[in-house]
Design a protein around this nucleic acid. Structure first.
Lengths: 243, 243
DNA sequence: TATGTTTATATGTATGTACATATATTTGAT
DNA sequence: ATCAAATATATGTACATACATATAAACATA
């Protein structure tokens, strides 16, 4: 395993250290509970200051990935979120697992200038076009979710792909892009005119709104996804266990 | 507002600074979008080093309370309430951690015959009374969530407890009941007349509905909780990482 | 044997310093 | 008046250093 830091790189040292740590702590010996090398030695080995190393460590500690104990050491936390694999199912897999047959009503691909939120998430300017994917899906008797996805140009999608295949199969097999981290925000909203039209409900009717931010293994943004779910047709379930 | 740090205290300076910042950023001028004093000046004013001040700031930044922009300044982030499933915090702890002052509008305790869903979850008959706790809580300017909780008789609550204390403190310290597993179901709904009245919105307005099933260390049911959140006042955030 | 006491170890706290870099404003040249 | 360059401002990065403190293990004492 690479345990080195490139001092000539323009990537800040603490970010390199953070990345390195993220890889390091995936090592079974650490997930099994072994303590990481101590800060002073590790800093010396990486040829960075302890302060800089701690900057990286802090981030992982705040994220709950690492646990530090004064006088003892630092080890990998036992994750408290147990619904991981469940969360990683794609939409179609999720529905299949629930025994819901899915019908695709609309599928529209386009290249667009991103709005500020998207550009900001991707860390690009609003002048650079991104791939936009809109999908309306649901049960045979009617649609119940409208998705809008944007993809980072880095991913390499052309827009010519066969989007009837599961999305993450395309990304992983054809583009070697592996989703690793997902942040979601779930809230309730009143449907606007546009969404109401798509979901065949009245404007003002409640919908579940789900924003999803997907990152790759280097924590670089891949996908920005918005989902508008008809109320009562979708329930989000979470299971979490205390350590 | 007290803007001072006690150098003689045994409380670490960065913790004092953190606490001070949490109070500071509740000031309407900051929640309205004004930038905080710059780090160098603020550090000087508090008579601590910039490094120490940044230690405190970092924490709030990681929590999403503050947003820093290089060359510009630091300001309070968009103030929608959010909940992190991984943290396993109680409602009041959650809000406190985000520096949101919580007002309790109503608190009602009663013994009732459970409906079928509750009885079924508790694995008891509908003939055995259970403790019901109703709470209306929110910001000073108005309520944003209505909770209904039912507790399993096994827990031993009498109904005479001081429910102004955090609930899980009561359960853990006084009744030695430790919540270990939580299953949640989140969906969107239209507010009914009753809930609309409580939340001071119109019937039919969208709400976020959150069912929560809590189990103890032996996976025995403890609490059945229903939460009705005003739309746009509550965002549920989930972070999941693939192994 | 049991119980304090020291010591080794690792993280926690705190400061001072220096320079880099992103952003907005001001200044200056054309 | 316009555009480019300088500058002011604030956060970002990075280091060296020093001492405090919690924990466990080794040691010494009664």
């Amino acid at each position: 395993m690479k345990l080195r830091i490139d001092h000539k790189s323009h990537v800040p040292l603490h970010l390199q250290a953070e990345e390195l740590l993220r890889n390091l702590i995936r090592d079974p010996q650490y997930t099994d509970g072994k303590f990481l090398p101590n800060e002073v030695d590790l800093a010396k080995q990486l040829a960075i200051s302890r302060t800089t190393l701690r900057q990286a460590l802090n981030k992982l500690v705040y994220e709950g990935l690492l646990i530090r104990k004064k006088g003892i050491g630092t080890k990998v936390a036992e994750s408290s979120v147990s619904s991981k694999s469940k969360n990683w199912l794609s939409f179609s897999q999720e529905m299949k697992a629930r025994g819901i047959p899915i019908k695709s009503f609309e599928l529209h691909v386009s290249w667009v200038y991103p709005d500020e939120a998207v550009a900001n998430f991707f860390e690009i300017t609003t002048q650079k076009k991104v791939l936009k994917l809109e999908r309306l899906r649901g049960r045979p008797e009617g649609p119940f979710v409208y998705f809008v996805s944007f993809f980072h140009p880095r991913v390499g999608l052309t827009g010519e792909e066969d989007f009837k295949r599961p999305l993450y199969e395309i990304l992983e097999k054809d583009y070697l892009v592996i989703a690793n981290l997902s942040k979601e925000e779930i809230s309730a909203k009143a449907a606007g005119k546009f969404i109401a039209g798509k979901l065949e409900i009245e404007p003002g009717n409640p919908i579940l709104f789900r924003k999803r931010f997907v990152y790759d293994q280097g924590d670089r943004p891949i996908e920005y996804n918005l989902g508008y779910y008809k109320a009562d047709s979708f329930v989000y379930t979470i299971e979490s266990r205390r350590e």
